[in-house]
Design a protein around this nucleic acid. Structure first.
Lengths: 260, 260
DNA sequence: TGCGGCAACTCATCAGACAAGTCAATGCAG
DNA sequence: CTGCATTGACTTGTCTGATGAGTTGCCGCA
């Protein structure tokens, strides 16, 4: 009961190895230590950080689990290269929007088909109302459009008559809201996107009304594929920008090294 | 290529703390240790695993970085609670086992296919270990077989390299445990079932090892279809029994009333 | 020159010690 | 009897020193 309060009160864990991890991580990510490089030996790190070898060891293990580093017995500790695996290996705290859409596609395509089979007349009527509201709101202010979006998709999930699937869909939308990364990005895309989401939604509802699972599945898939495509376009644009700054940075590094 | 095999085969080269992490992680994810619980003290873990306290400490740090656990100085190491699971807990309706299997079928069939595409060699090796443990445990005591089951399916979900899907799968297994209805029923079926789950699991892993998404999808689908079939058989049987006891009860009541 | 073997260096693990934080039971003062 | 301070057992955090085992490079020998 009071357990939760205690936990929140528990101040920032001031464990020593945390500090060492933070510093080394910064150096790895800041390209001071580059992939393939060997970290200074434990002995030297002891001198540098003024802590015992144990603490250094703990920090190295932390970095290993984060996927940043790979100790080799008898040889040294080496910086890992693959960025993708390192993100996957760490218990990635923030959820990527691509993952989210991919997961939604898997679950919601099926819920749409099930809903076409099993939705009650009341549920279909409710969906119709929601869509009508969305039409109206779109003309008014698009500030919180995603809320209506969420409600619509949740209504479909509930109409699948499977409480577990409904929970999953709800959880995924919650995830989106909780993850700053995903939420902001998807929000911006939705705002800027030319995607006729409303038309997508109408097509989905239409298929459900006709009790046509195949059509419902198709419509939902098309919808989420479009969202994903928008997302990837957007990501690509952003990535290109990042790449050019990255390359600029590498060029600078090479110049400095050549000057020696 | 042959090096990969050597490395995976080379079990002793795996650091000790890895093993401790794997076991404790399995217990946390298998819900032997539940959120808020305190882990055994380092001293007791030393005795249990027959390693030094240093190794235990390293494992605890690993679990901490994975976000599974939270050490509190002077008090103990506590299991953290999962966010998605908590959300699911809020809507505390009881979940039917049929719904659960249906939802799992939708999600896990796809995670298996994705895992066949994207699993790292380490992840595949881990799955192999889990299956080997299951083989051993099956011969010993079948008390907590479902824990290994859960861990295996979770490993696949994680190998899909989609954190959202992994969360969903984890949440569904938590749902199962939390729902007395589902848990007990599925447990009994597993115990009594003639289903060669082990063989199913081996087929799934084999497909993933071969990097064959279609086969993985097929194997997982077959597996869950079998579980579903067992469940339905069992439900039918139980329903029939209930009917006969019901009728027996009515007969008794009628007799008593007639005796008046 | 070529190669085996040795030595130095690395990580991996163990054992024991002490500091510091937590928590509950105990005992004393009011 | 109640409330509060103390104490003591238990826990994690950190340090020290020692041994084992794998890697690597150098040196001397053939």
């Amino acid at each position: 009961m009071a357990r939760e309060d205690e936990r929140t009160r528990n101040a920032p864990s001031a464990r020593l190895y945390r500090h060492v991890i933070d510093v080394l991580r910064a150096e790895i990510e800041g390209a001071v230590l580059r992939p393939g490089d060997r970290l200074p030996s434990e002995k030297r790190l002891v001198e540098r950080f003024n802590v015992s070898r144990l603490t250094i060891r703990e920090a190295v293990i932390g970095l290993e689990i984060l996927g940043l580093v790979e100790p080799r017995h008898g040889s040294g500790v080496f910086v890992r290269s693959n960025r993708v695996t390192q993100a996957a290996q760490a218990g990635s705290l923030d959820i990527g929007p691509v993952e989210l859409i991919e997961a939604r596609r898997i679950v919601e395509v099926q819920t749409a088909a099930l809903a076409a089979l099993e939705a009650t007349d009341e549920q279909i009527a409710a969906m119709r109302d929601i869509l009508a509201d969305m039409d109206k709101e779109e003309r008014a202010e698009g500030s919180a459009e995603w809320i209506a979006d969420r409600v619509f998709h949740l209504a479909i999930a509930r109409a699948s008559q499977n409480a577990v699937l409904a929970m999953m869909v709800e959880a995924m939308w919650d995830l989106r809201r909780r993850s700053p990364l995903s939420h902001e990005m998807l929000e911006r895309i939705a705002r800027a996107g030319q995607t006729p989401r409303i038309a997508d939604h109408h097509r989905i509802l239409e298929a459900i009304e006709k009790r046509d699972p195949a059509a419902a599945r198709r419509a939902m898939r098309a919808h989420l594929d479009r969202v994903m495509a928008d997302l990837l376009d957007f990501t690509e644009l952003e990535a290109k920008e990042r790449v050019s700054t990255e390359i600029a940075h590498r060029r600078e590094t090479a110049r400095r090294r050549a000057a020696l």
